[in-house]
Design a protein around this nucleic acid. Structure first.
Lengths: 351, 351
DNA sequence: CTTTTATATCGAAGCGTTTCGATACCTGCG
DNA sequence: CGCAGGTATCGAAACGCTTCGATATAAAAG
């Protein structure tokens, strides 16, 4: 195991100065073809690679971006943010950037819980995916390090944002149900404090209003919206609660697919047929949306794209410092499967 | 936006030398209580944090570890490796280490596709999660940088390993079926080139042998094992293929849960009752194993634990360089749910 | 009262790069 | 022939930090 080679070693071995080796490496100034060849041969022969750390020090640029995500989101409830992460990684790598990933719990105490890379300047920018403690954003904001929020928004701090068109997606869902003749449409979901969920609920209401069904939109006995983290159980509890209220409804819009899975199971248990007796529609289009029986009609969210756009946004901030805040909206697409129409339809690919 | 503060600024402001500030920071040598207080006040007041990059340069230690995972694994087929990642992150952070995450595709061309952080010395060690191109391991091995493979093994290169007790898990599955009276037990799965899947198959065979059912273990008409990546479709195809062969069987052990989901759906479509007509057992215990109808009996793999152990192993390598290769085996646990016993049983938590 | 020893502080070297002049050589043009 | 300007190479400073002596003082020991 030979000791780590440095640029000095290369210079010595090639019989040139350190600066010349550096010039060869960076392709900046003048180097004669002959010298260049000789240096390159030596470099290749010894498999030399410049130490990034040293470069960082002089350039003030790290080539890394932080990716912060709540532990729950990374792998707790849904198969969602790991795709956002993947999209971000693929896009970042195109520009030779790498992701320094860390998770945060649902509490965040500024000194101890702060990722070291934020304070130590190990990253050029940060992506925050999904909802995180408000304190985190409040901590990062004044740090003067570019950051982008994905599918989350701090209540009072303006940030760079990549958002899902939740409102529009929910409208699409409701309009689809209306087209298929469903009228008394319920809404079920957890995490109601999350802005995305609220937007979905508002989209649902708004579509009903436009269809002249304001009494449905306003009828809170048709709405089950709780603050607990989304799980299938919430969906099951939601739909059984509604059924037990003996309120009449023929369709349920779910805040997301996980909720919808719970609904499907609970309805089945009650002996109700989906979509015969009741339609169910989800949101997100997670992987298992195609595996349910019946396959779940849902609003597709392009998760990779969220990651990709977040990275692009961050790059723009980096290239254009002090250039105000950016804002991107990612559209959704209705995936019509079996849970909302009496005739089985073609099943599209999920995720 | 004030310019970035350095240790020099702190020294100047506190009226001491740079070295003294450094001593305060590191808690190494002698500093009088008075001086310490003064310096600490100044540091706190200006929210100064030493630049990691600079520290790296002198210490030769980065405080980062690489985490390499195939793009497919991160979010393609299963809800598995994102939990490994989470486990690794949580454990690494305990020692103030962070993960530099990157993905690899199923091809890997050494110069271009090599993550920069491997060459540039941005990490102190590397974790490789799941199966990756052989060339990747072949590339990293001679780099003399500590690395750990999780749930994967290079055919010829010896590495530090964290493995699942696949063989034992599959035995548990088969033994459970045998106890419940199932005898003609089939095996269905994809990705058969993956060592883990092969071990599961061998475990299945081995348990049957021990039970005196060698003819089942050897009967290839009961085995559906294909090289394609695991999907639910493979499971569906597998079980219908077996049914169409008109071979008699009353239970199917699946290479993993995704496969099992496909089996469940296909069986249901054929009008067969699970577990009445046929038992189905999975492997992994992914999140949706509890959401299927019937809930899936499966072999639980502690995914977080895989990540945790990988990080611990890597730390050992770092603290003990040149200390040979390490090897850890992570046990599994049978989760009995509804798909294997005629009487419904309590449903445990998944994932 | 001198000699250790423990305590406190500092200057300077060094970590591995990049980059900014400085120097020197050619070449071609007036 | 002399000189501008392009080409080639190099030495040295700088990036922000740690750490190794060196130096100085105070306390303890002889």
């Amino acid at each position: 195991m030979m000791a780590k080679m440095t640029i000095k070693d290369m210079a010595r071995l090639a019989g040139v100065s350190v600066s010349t080796v550096s010039l060869v490496l960076s392709n900046h100034g003048y180097v004669s073809a002959k010298t260049r060849r000789r240096v390159e041969r030596i470099i290749a022969k010894h498999n030399y690679h410049p130490r990034q750390t040293a470069r960082n020090l002089v350039s003030g640029r790290t080539g890394n971006m932080g990716f912060i995500i709540s532990d729950i989101h990374l792998s707790g409830t849904e198969f969602f943010y790991s795709r956002v992460l993947l999209g971000a990684e693929l896009e970042a790598r195109k520009k030779d950037y790498y992701l320094l990933v860390t998770t945060v719990g649902d509490t965040f105490q500024p000194p101890q819980d702060t990722p070291r890379f934020l304070k130590g300047g190990d990253v050029d920018g940060v992506i925050i995916a999904g909802s995180v403690p408000e304190e985190l954003v409040a901590y990062i904001h004044p740090l003067n390090i570019p950051y982008v929020l994905v599918d989350y928004k701090h209540p009072s701090i303006d940030s760079n944002l990549v958002q899902i068109e939740n409102h529009d997606g929910a409208c699409q869902a409701v309009e689809h149900l209306l087209r298929h003749g469903y009228r008394r449409i319920a809404f079920v979901g957890g995490s109601c404090r999350h802005a995305s969920i609220r937007e979905r609920f508002r989209g649902y209401q708004s579509a009903l209003h436009h269809a002249g069904l304001s009494e449905v939109a306003q009828d809170d006995s048709l709405h089950f919206l709780v603050p607990e983290e989304t799980t299938a159980l919430i969906g099951a509890r939601g739909v059984t609660t509604l059924l037990d209220r003996a309120v009449q409804f023929d369709a349920v819009v779910c805040a997301n697919d996980t909720t919808a899975l719970g609904c499907l199971n609970a309805l089945q248990e009650r002996g109700l047929d989906v979509p015969g007796d009741m339609a169910v529609i989800g949101f997100d289009d997670i992987r298992y949306a195609t595996e349910t029986k019946p396959a779940l009609t849902t609003v597709h969210v392009p998760k990779l794209e969220l990651g990709v756009q977040a990275v692009r946004l961050l790059f723009e901030c980096l290239e254009n410092p002090g250039g105000g805040l950016y804002h991107r909206s990612i559209g959704t697409e209705l995936m019509v499967r079996e849970s909302t129409s009496r005739v089985p339809v073609e099943t599209g690919a999920a995720v």
